[in-house]
């Protein structure tokens, strides 16, 4: 399902989103009055230095955290009004996550790590197909301890996409990888985005990556500092690390 250029549809509508953390007497404004829309089927890169608010943004959009004020709409559901149970349901049905440190279950094989998610999904793909999509069809019976970092991250991607989520949220997916394996992982993400049409958001420190995305959103000091569309995209292999 290629991205339709004619009718861009917002999958997320975010307005005046703020998040304040309180630790003791210190108040940290992690995100301050952010408003933006995310378009269905697009790959978006979120850029910004540490503490700029991009992770906070991703956590709220992914249903891992709650906003202090503002609203987030996922399609016609208002995430910001969801309780804990509804957020669990939302994550289960609509969102796939990929983390910097993979977070695979060490006691489950690659195939089982993916099946973990497909077992509880409504319309999953086969675990084997998901692994094939990231090029790991020959590593399915391996435990995490038997896989390289790049392979582990690809299992994590397979696990995230196996339930056919509408949104794939990646927090520094290449942060712990060298350039060569990083490119393989980005390839897998691009492939998923193109073939499944999954709306994808990737957080990164690496500005070089931004050119593979449809859209780039930059954060600074908890605020939106820039948001632009890439006129032309490059392939992951062309990324200068």
């Amino acid at each position: 399902m290629p991205v339709s250029k004619n009718k861009p549809r917002e999958i997320f509508k975010i307005s005046h989103l703020s998040k304040i953390y309180r630790t003791g007497e210190v108040e940290v404004r992690a995100m301050n009055d952010v408003s933006l829309d995310m378009i269905e089927g697009e790959m978006t890169v979120l850029l910004g230095p540490s503490g700029s608010g991009k992770s906070t943004f991703l956590n709220i959009v992914g249903g891992l955290d709650q906003a202090s004020s503002g609203t987030v709409f996922f399609k016609d559901m208002e995430l910001t009004s969801f309780n804990e149970r509804q957020l669990t349901r939302y994550r289960r049905d609509h969102v796939g996550f990929v983390f910097q440190f993979y977070n695979l279950i060490p006691s489950l094989t690659a195939w089982e790590n993916v099946a973990l998610v497909t077992e509880v999904s409504k319309n999953p793909m086969k675990a084997g197909d998901a692994l094939a999509m990231v090029g790991l069809e020959n590593r399915m019976t391996h435990f995490p301890a038997q896989l390289s970092g790049g392979e582990q991250q690809r299992v994590a991607i397979a696990r995230a996409i196996a339930k056919r989520p509408e949104v794939l949220l990646c927090d520094e997916p290449t942060g712990a990888l060298d350039s060569k394996t990083g490119i393989i992982v980005l390839d897998a993400l691009t492939k998923v985005n193109e073939e499944l049409g999954t709306t994808t958001a990737i957080i990164t420190h690496n500005a070089g990556i931004q050119k593979i995305a449809h859209r780039v959103i930059s954060f600074l000091d908890g605020k939106l500092s820039n948001c632009h569309e890439n006129k032309s995209r490059i392939k992951p292999a062309e990324v200068v690390w």
Binding site: R85, T88, R91, R92, D93, N103, L104, S107, L116
Partner: peptide, 13 residues
């Protein structure tokens, strides 16, 4: 970490 991952994937408490 495992258990938190499961929660993130949408498994209930």
């Amino acid at each position: 970490r495992e258990l938190a991952s499961l929660r993130v994937f949408g498994f209930t408490r």
